[in-house]
Nucleic acid binder design. Structure first.
Lengths: 144, 144
DNA sequence: TGTTGTTAGTTACAAAATCAACCATTAACT
DNA sequence: AGTTAATGGTTGATTTTGTAACTAACAACA
């Protein structure tokens, strides 16, 4: 349209990031969706509990940046799959602690292994230095 | 949970990419959503037409990787906003050519300028070399 | 005690994304 | 020509997300 127009969609960072993110998560998504019928929010919650142990929904929200309604639904779904259990706090009966069940832990470990090999495959296209640089850049963008 | 567990969510590339992508598109989203009531697919279609001129829905799909139903709905929405017009091909009456209207072009130019300054702001945190490296990496991941 | 404010989490309803089935038209083959 | 397949695009049903309002429990303070 505009011949001397420098702008290119493929170079627009939000667009590029999105394309890369989508491509990178595709094959992993197939596993957690296909094998466990999970949604993106669900595996994230699962991983938080697997990595950090017992947490409340609010704590998961703080760590993940996920909104509490998303977490509430993910927790309900994971509970339905018998992957997590809730425990009311007796001191403050508003809060409930979430922990993985045995099968929840098994699912976490399974998915974690897959995530790791998936990551390796993705990074095959990069030297370790490039990979480190890339990740540092992404963290900066993520506002960490 | 697993003390000697090397895995970290913040280092898992699909997760990291997603966080970065979300953070990076947030402020731009506010503009196209707030100012023009557009959805993500809509600005993408708008940009494709702004950048490449007259295209069919299928061509947009090939270039963008968007599914045809998404495009169909985005096109309908943009048409409703009087940003694009359709033109049937007389040779093959299945295909229709899409072009921006004057106000569609104006919206495109407006958003493109905002995209550019948004991009600049994002890249302020990087040296030109870092930025170039980052983008090359992302393109590699995007499977371009 | 009663009122007001906060926090943890859920639910209800609307907006949007997904997926499959669907026309209409053209192409290919007999 | 008649049938079958492929293509361009749309529509409808279902799922998922987003936003706001909500309940329940606690806290602060008069």
């Amino acid at each position: 349209m505009d011949e001397k127009d420098a702008f290119q969609l493929q170079d627009f960072l939000p667009y590029l990031l999105n394309q890369a993110a989508e491509a990178a998560s595709l094959s992993f998504q197939k596993v957690y969706k296909g094998r466990y019928g999970m949604l993106r929010t669900e595996w994230r919650v699962l991983f938080h509990l697997g990595l950090y142990g017992r947490l409340t929904a609010t704590e998961i929200g703080e760590r993940s940046g996920l909104h509490k309604t998303k977490i509430s639904r993910a927790v309900a779904a994971l509970e339905g799959k018998r992957f997590i259990v809730r425990e009311r706090d007796d001191e403050d009966r508003r809060v409930e602690y979430l922990t993985l069940t045995t099968s929840g832990l098994a699912a976490y470990k399974d998915l974690r292994a897959i995530a790791q090999s998936h990551e390796e495959r993705l990074l095959k296209a990069f030297t370790p230095e490039e990979a480190a640089l890339l990740k540092r850049g992404l963290k900066r963008l993520a506002g960490a």
